[in-house]
Amino acid sequence: MIKSISIIFRTLRIFWATSLAGEVEYRLNLFVECFSVIGNLSGSLFVLYMFYSNGKYLGGWNWNSSLVVLGFYYLLEGFTIILLQPNLTRIVRHIQQGSLDFILLKPIDSQFWLSSRMISPWGIPSLLAGLILIARGIYMSVHTMSISSILAALTMLISSLAILYSLWFLIATTSIWFVKIWNANEVLRSVLVAGRYPISAYPEVVRAIFTFILPVAFLTTIPAETLLGKSYISWMSSSIMIALILFLTSRAFWKYALRFYTSASS
């Protein structure tokens, strides 16, 4: 057990060292990502400003607390760029070209390999933007911050990352059957976009969809509520439940899908 954990950590270190070495060669990306985050951030703030120019509240959230929601959105966006996006494109390529064979033959969990093989540093600007927004929103709206609510919010963040990851891996897994899903990235992004705003800003029907079908509510709104000390224990526990269920589903679905992997014939 200890040995396999140490193998996993050593593998991760080498995975990330090698993929960073490849990534740093493309310095244009740093420029693009910085500009894209700045542009995107000002755009989002502008849209938010337009919402608030009509009234004081957006679905019961004031300006500063919805900044916290936006902040969590940028944290997830950063996570997507750093880990999800570079690996997703590779999964599809592995299946297309049949090099998944090599990964399946390694004595290491194939889902672990496929999800953690690549890492890209270009999500850091988004992460920074997210942290700044959260800090600013919190500072302006709540003056005291208890350790327990920070810890709770961290737990919610982890469970929202797990939800996002599992959804993403479920989509990636379908490429075993449908080899051509290069726009899966777009899907993930656009689902996330809905998380820029508090879930209560949506009409009831849409809210229901974003809670029960595509769990966008749990991605940004619940962590933000928790940090602001507004969340209920029932929502928090359901977030953890959903994260667990989705994660286990993604594992089971991957195992199931592998039975249909015919290994791109030579």
Binding site: W177, V187, S190, V193
Partner: peptide
């Protein structure tokens, strides 16, 4: 391309959101 189309459908929904 039905899988593509299903995915694309979700990604095109931004105006409706």
């Amino acid at each position: 391309y039905r899988a593509e189309i299903a995915l694309w459908a979700i990604s095109g929904l931004l105006p409706l959101i």
